[in-house]
Design a protein around this nucleic acid. Sequence first.
DNA 1: ATAGTAGTTGCAAATACTTGCAATAGCAAG
DNA 2: CTTGCTATTGCAAGTATTTGCAACTACTAT
Lengths: 143, 143
Amino acid sequence: MSCEFQLAEELREQGFRVTPQRAIILETISHQGGHLSVQQVYNEARLRLPGLNLATVYRAVESLHEAGLVDVYSTGTEPVRFSLRDPDNVHGHMICRCCGADNKLEAPSLHVIQDHIQSSYGFEVDTHHLLLEGYCPACLEKD
Amino acid sequence: MSCEFQLAEELREQGFRVTPQRAIILETISHQGGHLSVQQVYNEARLRLPGLNLATVYRAVESLHEAGLVDVYSTGTEPVRFSLRDPDNVHGHMICRCCGADNKLEAPSLHVIQDHIQSSYGFEVDTHHLLLEGYCPACLEKD
DNA sequence: ATAGTAGTTGCAAATACTTGCAATAGCAAG
DNA sequence: CTTGCTATTGCAAGTATTTGCAACTACTAT
């Protein structure tokens, strides 16, 4: 049973249909690794499925995101990027508004935030998509 | 000395030029209040400055944001919205991924997060633009 | 007051993304 | 295996936002 098969099964269990488009998009994201843009996935996946439409990639990514298979993140200034969700490497991002640096936010910190918000408001923060903006140590020093 | 004059002065002190476009856009945001879209500001401001271009509104909002006069927030699914920064009402947003509800995140919680991140990473979270995504109590109950 | 130098603007074109709709095709039930 | 319901797709058009560039103008320093 391949890794892709498991992913497809997971998708089906979440109530989504497993179409060739979604399967190939999922495999592409899985094989490429890292944070991909819609265009990158589109270019790559279209080699194997020539009729593939860009709108389909956008919708597929949204579905995969809803199914919890893919993490999406957007800094607001750049095109949206996303990656296969890796349960062993949950992390957030701290983006410096000054230099644009993207620092990794480790899981323990995510849980501090999640726990605090949970106990204060009963709201469950999704730790798979946390993005904080502000100023990195280097830029703070430069002032 | 009017309120708008002070805002313009603040803009200049931040190293930005005070152009008629920026002044009118700032006044418009200030008078309208609430969370405005680029289109709303464009429509309103153009009444007073007919040649105004939409791209200029986008760039002006970005400048006003950099100058710390305007807060911007974007849920990723809707067009960007923004408002005049109000130092007496600093707050964040908790967006429910299920029902879309936008719950207010109070200042004390913002500081808990800011302090934690500051002491762990030396990164200074900008509390004026915090947006958390997750699931609200009502949707958690529905499961 | 005047001139010089960037920062800004308007325009038009490019990019990024979304949506409506008819045709297609997964999947569940028989 | 066949049928039917409905989610999903491709297409085309629409909306949202960004960018390059030449003309313009707010501010700085004379």
